[in-house]
């Protein structure tokens, strides 16, 4: 039994075996792995008696879920209204340029994933980004290199 399967099993036990447990369960799996592995999906489908296609339907409907492993650090760039007005799109374009990836992608070295989010709900700090759990407010274009390098350096250590 692979590690993913035994882990998913242990998560399933914590939930009722019914449809309403599906989303929380998938969220648990994603918290564990950063994405939802195929093996987990098959197992959940079996245990909850739901068709896999239906699970894929749910996974693709909700923007929170990922089907591929994310980078070590996830950069989420807010595209809320306040951020848009304060230049959030240019910030996203710059991250995209500097990392050489589009939003939704992961850098080749696996260090960063880039995501656009509809709103982080921190409009007072616009334009705002979050790297993993840490928020950066009032981000200036010329700060981007510094921010990225900080994560690159800690990674090299």
């Amino acid at each position: 039994m692979t590690e993913v399967i035994s882990k998913t099993k242990s998560l399933i036990i914590k939930h009722e075996k019914e449809q309403s447990a599906l989303i929380p369960l998938l969220q648990n799996v994603q918290t564990e792995y950063g994405y939802v592995p195929k093996e987990s999906i098959d197992l959940i489908a079996d245990e909850l008696s739901i068709f896999p296609v239906e699970i894929y339907g749910v996974l693709t409907f909700y923007s929170q879920f990922h089907l591929n492993p994310p980078g070590k650090h996830t950069i989420r760039v807010c595209q809320g209204t306040a951020c848009h007005v304060m230049g959030g799109k240019v910030i996203l374009d710059n991250f995209s340029n500097k990392l050489g990836i589009e939003d939704g992608e992961t850098t080749e070295d696996g260090l960063f994933s880039l995501e656009r989010v509809a709103c982080l709900g921190a409009c007072g700090m616009a334009p705002v980004i979050a790297i993993d759990e840490k928020f950066y407010g009032k981000v200036q274009l010329n700060e981007i290199d510094g921010i990225l390098n900080k994560y690159r350096e800690t990674n090299e250590k």
Partner: peptide, 11 residues
């Protein structure tokens, strides 16, 4: 759910 981009009252 506070999905409205630009709102953070509920949060």
């Amino acid at each position: 759910d506070e999905g409205d981009p630009g709102a953070f009252m509920d949060r």
